[in-house]
Amino acid sequence: NKFNKELQWATWEIFNLPNLNEEQVKAFIDSLRDDPSQSANLLAEAKKLNDAQA
Rank of each mutant, 00 (worst) to 15 (best):
N1S: 04
N1K: 04
N1H: 03
N1A: 02
N1F: 01
K2P: 14
K2V: 10
K2N: 15
K2S: 15
K2H: 15
K2A: 15
F3I: 12
F3W: 06
N4W: 15
N4R: 04
N4F: 14
K5Y: 07
K5R: 04
K5T: 13
E6S: 05
E6A: 05
L7A: 09
L7E: 06
L7F: 09
L7P: 03
Q8N: 06
Q8F: 12
Q8V: 09
Q8L: 13
Q8Y: 14
Q8A: 14
Q8R: 05
W9A: 13
W9T: 06
A10F: 15
T11V: 12
T11Y: 12
W12P: 02
W12E: 07
E13V: 15
I14Y: 02
I14L: 07
I14S: 02
I14V: 05
I14D: 01
F15E: 14
F15A: 10
F15W: 13
F15H: 10
F15T: 14
N16Y: 04
N16E: 05
N16A: 12
N16V: 04
L17R: 00
P18T: 11
P18F: 10
P18W: 08
P18D: 05
N19R: 02
N19H: 10
N19E: 03
N19P: 00
N19D: 05
N19S: 07
L20Q: 00
L20W: 01
N21Q: 08
N21W: 08
N21M: 07
N21A: 08
E22Q: 12
E22H: 12
E22G: 11
E23Y: 12
E23M: 09
Q24S: 02
Q24H: 02
Q24N: 02
Q24M: 03
Q24Y: 02
V25D: 00
K26I: 10
K26H: 09
K26M: 11
A27T: 14
A27D: 07
F28H: 01
F28S: 00
I29Q: 03
I29H: 03
D30N: 14
D30K: 09
S31R: 13
S31N: 10
S31K: 11
S31A: 15
L32H: 01
L32M: 13
L32T: 02
L32A: 04
R33D: 09
R33I: 15
R33F: 15
D34S: 12
D34G: 08
D35T: 08
D35K: 12
D35G: 03
P36L: 05
Q38M: 10
S39I: 11
S39L: 06
S39R: 04
A40N: 09
A40D: 07
N41W: 14
N41G: 09
N41D: 07
L42P: 00
L42S: 02
L42H: 04
L42Y: 09
L43G: 01
L43A: 04
L43T: 05
L43P: 00
A44E: 10
A44P: 01
A44L: 12
E45M: 12
E45L: 11
E45Y: 13
A46S: 02
A46M: 02
A46T: 00
K47I: 07
K47V: 08
K47A: 05
K47G: 03
K47H: 08
K47W: 09
K48W: 07
K48R: 13
K48S: 11
L49D: 01
L49I: 09
L49M: 11
L49V: 08
N50L: 01
N50T: 01
D51M: 13
D51L: 12
A52F: 13
Q53Y: 06
Q53K: 05
Q53A: 07
A54H: 07
A54S: 10
A54N: 11
A54M: 10
A54E: 10
